[in-house]
Design a protein around this nucleic acid. Structure first.
Lengths: 129, 129, 129, 129
DNA sequence: GTGGTCTAGACCACT
DNA sequence: GTGGTCTAGACCACA
């Protein structure tokens, strides 16, 4: 699992870290129970501050993707991943909405948009899982 | 066309304004050539700062959705809406990616995701355009 | 509303700050919609770091006691305070349990314990509300 | 007497151990003079570090709940359990206070709170002692 | 002027 | 060695 941070990006570094770890989970590169690097190790690795990594890990903890244990450090949630409940779908819809509005305003059809969705799904699920 | 601002949202107010205007365009409520409220009027209407509205309008101009003329004020781009070129699609893909990664990590299938996309499309295109 | 921080205490400073603000709400000294000092102002006032206050405010936000708005700063949740739902009661029970176990082990009766509860309620609700 | 440790809890493991032993005393499952498992045995049993169990035992000793003898090992205080003196009550009040403040802020009435206290007492004193 | 983000460096509690 | 807490100081986005 390799993390690549874009320091120029508008998205905060801690968000980038969290997103890439979620991607890793989606891809199956990170499996439940697996340990993540310690905050210090990852911070050195990425060349960012320890607190930045810490914030990313806590974001993931809050959303239920990881557990933070005293000694063992941080591990991918081993028991039950958070599920796509109604609240999540509602939230997803809200975040999807502006993207779709832009697409429509630029004349895209729904099937063109779904093509992009398919592209992204294939990137993240290469095995057709 | 009614704009509703959520002051406690994380998304900056100027982004909210811009997004809702783009939604208006997508829905067909705002048609090319149509004038938008003056910066001052909208600011008073929404109870926000002049600069905030101004920033939203300039963001829209930069993306090609509106024209800003000294006389006519701000109007929806009358000639040619920006199109969904490769660069836009690439950008869209990047913004879509973390949403899809989260969905997959929570066990959603592609057709479930596309259902949400469909929901959103229907909200924005009620006439089946 | 006066905050007093004990630097020697085991409880983290940010927890102390959050607890005292909750006390202020309980006492009715802080009313919904009321503004709290800015992170910087309170930090200077208490002689602690800005981040410490920030963390306290975010804890309160997460639990629904305050709203953090862009410009206005931090205000006591004006709409609806978080309620004592089942989850809260369950959590409260868990935190109560060790206190009660100690009390029992030291031979306290239930009515003695409830007397202490009454004392505390009276301190926080002096008007008999 | 069965101890269950939650590794992902915020409360330190040694605190959890100590609390559960106090609970055992409260419930009457552990009676004065009774021996506790050796540090080593309990550590292996719980899968935690020796130091952790040791710290829990010494915490209990410090509060007067157990005696630590070289020969007999650790036993529940056989002579006189610590009592609920003024200092203990004062300490209890301080720990109770934030719980009650939260309850009030969420609109709980005193009798609702006492109901929870009753629930907890019944769990710990099932025999109505 | 407000909070948001990030850095650098420190000490401590826990295991 | 791990995360938790705290400090000091800085720059930026937002309004």
């Amino acid at each position: 699992m390799l993390l690549a941070i874009d320091l120029q990006s508008e998205t905060p570094i801690y968000t980038q870290i969290a997103q890439q770890i979620i991607e890793g989970i989606a891809k199956g590169e990170l499996i439940p129970g697996e340990g993540l690097p310690s905050v210090r190790a990852l911070a050195v690795d990425l060349g960012v501050n320890l607190h930045t990594v810490n914030k990313a890990y806590h974001l993931l903890k809050q959303d239920g993707y990881v557990q933070i244990n005293r000694k063992q450090g941080v591990i991918i949630e081993p028991d039950a991943m958070p599920i796509a409940d109604e609240q999540f779908k509602k939230n997803l819809l809200e975040r999807l909405r502006p993207l779709i509005a832009e697409a429509i305003a630029r004349g895209m059809e729904m099937n063109q948009f779904e093509e992009l969705v398919g592209t992204s799904f294939n990137e993240l699920l290469p095995n057709g899982r």
